[in-house]
Design a binder for these strands. Structure first.
Length: 277
DNA sequence: CAGCGTGTTGAGGA
DNA sequence: TTCCTCAACACGCT
């Protein structure tokens, strides 16, 4: 499900539903999701704590609690939250965890492929938590600077698509939006990153920002599984220009859209519109 | 039945 | 050492 827009939509939903509530009982069905702490301590830190704020770093969701601790969630491929009235959620084989809240509702977490992660860290140490420490800024961050992006890309021998998926170069972008961004700026995904000039880096930044914000406005993209209760399913899939197997020809030049592999990732590209540098 | 996938990491190679 | 690639993670869908 999740790249930056989908993660932000999940956060917007959670903010509306669970801000200022307290966690009560917790059941963990798939223990391996909790990475850096025991189940016992995970429960100890979360039970009876109040959710003060929910923030995002790249694709990480960070729930800040009133005991100085933060619960960090990464949805990876298929992590999903569900909010229900108490006793109305039915536990199934994909249920990872079930949290009882102090307003007679429950927060459930499901993950079909079991790649999602939970971590617990002191809020003041969030930025030294290794996976977050390594993240670069995302394109909707006000302080994002495309000169910095240019500096990083100009040192990289990776293909531009691979570089833009590297969360230490720029965060928040995944396999769908990277294809959309590169189509928008007319750059072929196999272009070597260091060959891209500053002016194109500025365009990449502008496109990325516009596309990600636009997608958030449409509640994200639903290809297979991005849906959860309490919010209408995203609709940005209707606005995608290339990354969708139903798009057979280029919306700009009518050329056939190619499907290639770039570093093992399925990639949609218009060979006519997108220039290889 | 085989192949594929919206993400990330660690092992192994250059 | 540093940079890069690719398999692995786990499971449902085509």
């Amino acid at each position: 499900m999740p790249e930056l827009p989908e993660v932000q939509v999940v956060i917007n939903f959670l903010e509306k539903e669970i801000l200022n509530l307290k966690f009560k009982e917790i059941e963990i069905f798939i223990p391996k999701i909790i990475k850096n702490i025991s189940i016992k301590d995970f429960k100890k830190y979360i039970i009876d704590s109040k959710i003060l704020s929910i923030t995002r770093k790249g694709k990480y969701i960070i729930l800040n609690l009133n005991n100085g601790v933060s619960w960090i969630v990464h949805l990876r491929m298929e992590g999903k939250f569900f909010i229900n009235n108490k006793n109305e959620y039915s536990i199934n084989k994909h249920t990872v965890a079930l949290f009882e809240l102090d307003n007679n509702k429950t927060l459930a977490f499901e993950d079909t492929r079991r790649f999602a992660t939970f971590d617990i860290i002191q809020t003041k140490n969030i930025n030294s938590f290794e996976p977050i420490k390594k993240l670069s800024k995302d394109p909707i961050d006000e302080s994002f600077n495309y000169n910095d992006l240019f500096q990083k890309l100009s040192k990289s021998n990776k293909k531009i698509k691979t570089a833009l998926l590297d969360q230490t170069i720029i965060s928040g972008i995944g396999n769908i939006y990277v294809d959309e961004i590169l189509f928008d700026v007319k750059i072929h995904p196999q272009t070597i990153a260091k060959k891209i000039p500053l002016t194109q880096c500025e365009q990449i930044y502008n496109s990325a920002k516009r596309i990600l914000l636009d997608s958030i406005k449409h509640n994200g993209t639903t290809i297979n599984s991005f849906k959860f209760n309490g919010i209408e399913t995203g609709s940005y899939q209707n606005y995608l220009m290339v990354h969708n197997k139903n798009i057979k020809e280029c919306k700009k030049c009518k050329n056939k859209i190619s499907f290639i592999k770039v570093n093992g990732r399925g990639t949609f590209v218009c060979d006519k519109c997108q220039k290889l540098f």
